[in-house]
Computed example of a mutant assay.
Amino acid sequence: MQKSKRILVCPLDWGLGHASRMVPVIYELINSGHQVIIGADNSPLDLLRKEFPNLEYIKFPSFSISYSQGSSQVLSMLLQLPKIFSGIKKEHLLLKKIIRDYSIDIVISDNRFGLWNKEIKTIFITHQLKIKMPAGVKIMTEPFAVLNNRFISKFSECWIPDYPGEMNLSGDLSHNIKRNASCKFIGPLSRFSYVSAICPDFNIPEPLEVLIILSGPEPQREILEKLLLSQIEKEKKNVIIVQGKTQEKIITKKENITIVPYLGSAELKYLIEKAEVIICRSGYSSIMDLVSLKKSAILIPTPGQTEQDYLAKYLSEKKMFTYSSQDSLNLSELFSVYKNINPFYNSPENNLLKDALGGQ
């Protein structure tokens, strides 16, 4: 039997997706007899504490990014580059102290570039080896690819949460490109793979015609919520909205619409399986969760996030999802298109994650 190791798991603090896809990794580590320590902050910390209340936690701040209210984030991101690089350096230095103080053997970092260390094994998890640049700055694609690869190469290994062949979810983000030798595919990661569905403790409408799952950074999360509410009220359908607010608890109801701040994995799984139509962002973690349950959705990319734009279009072309930009959102039209989607995805059986973790 392999020796138990102290493994630090650290998701990026940009929305909830990076934390939620660490859930299956943590379950596998625990099942393998390892001691897991969570290093996170804000909403990711709240999410993982709710999922694993008995684990050890370290408040490990990640640099925060501000998003504009407009449809383009290019200028906003470029202006924040010095802040991002400074944040990467700070978390790298802080990691050295954490490794020493907590006797860490291995670090698993989900998209936190500063969490590499020369003294111990460090693993970087990402589905985005290729950075999709907006139309106005496509000239920067190659320089950013070189920079991205330079950061990733500092880690002992890079794990890609996708399948290696044609039956994949991330498309050009991690396929059809030259990859570092340390990269390995570990299969999609879904928090629903390790929990049984539990009915939430509030009245679920029959039928549950629409489930809206909100996520991502502010102010775009709130902007989409208001936009969806303004349109869904006219549809006269039974609707549940999950806001993605981990620190709030009050459930509100307005006629046929129930608004829930946050749900744990087991309760959210129950609603996804029950819902006739699902609406959410096209974040990669949301896509992996839906595919694991063989459910389709109407995807609405976060404005300015080129990765989400690409994923929505790529998976729509594969007839797995439909999508709309936030600016041109028309729910009445989308509901009619949704009926023609075939959500079935014949995902390969695999033990890629278990195989990857077996070497720890």
Rank of each mutant, 00 (worst) to 15 (best):
T322Y: 05
K184E: 14
S64C: 03
I213K: 12
E91M: 08
L271T: 09
S328L: 14
S174M: 02
K130F: 15
E209Y: 06
V277L: 13
K184S: 12
G264Q: 05
Y338R: 02
T302D: 10
Y57N: 04
I279R: 05
V25M: 09
N111I: 12
E222P: 03
L211A: 06
V23I: 10
F335A: 04
Y67V: 09
K154M: 00
P82N: 11
L208A: 07
H92C: 04
G359T: 07
V337Q: 14
L228I: 03
V239E: 06
S20G: 01
S193M: 11
V137I: 15
P207N: 11
K254I: 08
E273A: 02
V260H: 07
L94G: 02
V210L: 15
A197T: 09
Q73P: 10
G171C: 10
L229V: 11
Q35R: 08
L334M: 08
K5T: 00
I65C: 08
Q308Y: 04
R191V: 00
G187Y: 01
K226E: 14
N346W: 03
E28G: 09
N111P: 09
K253R: 15
D289N: 15
H92A: 06
K254L: 11
G165V: 03
M77I: 15
P82R: 05
V9M: 07
K318D: 00
D327T: 12
S43T: 03
L115P: 12
L271Y: 02
L208Q: 01
K313V: 01
L214I: 09
Y323S: 08
P134N: 07
I58S: 07
L55P: 04
P11E: 05
G136A: 02
I108F: 06
P219G: 06
E56M: 00
F321D: 00
L214F: 06
G283M: 09
L315W: 13
N256A: 15
E218N: 07
Y194K: 15
T258W: 12
I37Y: 00
P143H: 00
I251P: 05
E349A: 07
S72C: 10
I152Y: 02
I84H: 03
G187F: 00
K226V: 01
Q220E: 15
L357E: 09
G87W: 04
F344N: 12
Y194E: 15
S32K: 11
P11L: 04
K354Q: 11
I341D: 07
I99L: 12
K294L: 08
S282P: 02
I152D: 02
S156C: 07
E233L: 10
I26H: 05
L29W: 01
S190A: 01
N31L: 14
N168G: 03
S347C: 14
S196A: 13
I212N: 08
C158T: 04
G15M: 07
M77K: 13
P143S: 06
P164N: 09
V36F: 05
P61F: 02
L189H: 00
S66D: 14
Y102P: 09
G283F: 08
S332T: 15
E209M: 11
S66M: 13
V337G: 00
E28L: 03
V277G: 10
P219Q: 11
S86H: 15
G33Y: 13
D41E: 12
I272Y: 06
E209W: 06
L331Y: 04
E218R: 00
L169W: 00
D162V: 00
G15W: 10
D46Y: 00
I287E: 09
N203Y: 12
P134I: 05
Y338S: 03
F144A: 14
L129E: 09
K118S: 13
S68R: 13
P44H: 01
G136I: 11
